[in-house]
Nucleic acid binder design. Sequence first.
DNA 1: CGCCCTTCTTGGCATTTGGCAAGAAATACG
DNA 2: CGTATTTCTTGCCAAATGCCAAGAAGGGCG
Lengths: 192, 192
Amino acid sequence: MKKEKLVLFLQRVALVTAGQAAAIADEFSYLALEKNDFLLQAGQVSDSYLFLDAGLLRAFTYDTAGHDVTTGFYGSGEVVIEVASFFQRTPSQEYFQALTACTGWRISFTQLNALFHARPEFREFGRAILVRGFAALKTRMLATITEPAAARYEHLVRASPELVQHAPLKHIASYLGITDTSLSRIRKTLAQ
Amino acid sequence: MKKEKLVLFLQRVALVTAGQAAAIADEFSYLALEKNDFLLQAGQVSDSYLFLDAGLLRAFTYDTAGHDVTTGFYGSGEVVIEVASFFQRTPSQEYFQALTACTGWRISFTQLNALFHARPEFREFGRAILVRGFAALKTRMLATITEPAAARYEHLVRASPELVQHAPLKHIASYLGITDTSLSRIRKTLAQ
DNA sequence: CGCCCTTCTTGGCATTTGGCAAGAAATACG
DNA sequence: CGTATTTCTTGCCAAATGCCAAGAAGGGCG
């Protein structure tokens, strides 16, 4: 139940001292999810800014045709937030569900803003998380429109092999923008 | 050469008073681009946080196969930034080029941070722009993996009809993730 | 252990989209 | 005005992916 990972992460991303990081981390409280628990449900206003210590989460929504579509995966060492809902205080369109048992550290919207106010050095962290997420999404977007599904799958496997172990194929497929049937065939050809 | 649009935009997004907005807008300086001028070239570190008053811009990059891929379009009343390059002070992967003559108001990274420091009420604006951009990109990502190209094109036409007037078909096509040939056929069927 | 339900694979066929190439139309520019 | 260049359309065929359905494999639980 130590906040070591969080403290190190804060130091690295916000470029703050160990002491500052420890003080900031103090505001975060422990959160645990069991497999299949929801961190957030559609319709709710998110109030969780979560640093994931261990475990895997999946974000998903339903498209206009009612299909379950995976919008993101989150692994250990990542910040899990539904940006629009959390910062704009609007109902979420997405569900966030634990793929495996998860543990992490969370703060609320109010706490986060209080920290930004009290600790100017922490503001850089808040911005950096948004900027990183933005850049990652742009990279994913570019890959989606320029690379074939097989290549996108290979990248995913290389980037997060644990994910492929724990997430059912249909969730990975919808994340990649293809059907589970296609992904199954892609796997087959890659295996050869 | 009046900053009216910018002032109104600041008031609406940052929820500041007219006086505060005018003071903030004071820091922005006039910028004009002729058609085909570049606001930013790949390899440069962006130092432009631009509010576009009039005109159209296109952002693009080259994929691994060397194809020109449109990553975004920007119209009047929008904030034009290469988020990763501007905030992380890293070389841009993208080009930003004027599709038509453009006018707008820009500030530098240093100025922006000075404003955040001097005017706490402006911080909300900075965050809101990032959050909006993030949410918009997520929506686009979801549409890309769930909707057929024809539907994505129709949405684009409805959302920005002027864009379709000024951007060549191949740029729109690569933005949608299809070839110009396919888009031409899609247009044909939609016309009937 | 055995059943049930979810997950994964596979086959057959339809649809979408791409690659290539040619020609028509529009636009830029001397 | 006329030529050159770019843009857009179209035809033909190939490749990628989707849809439907059936069966195999795997995991959870009484």
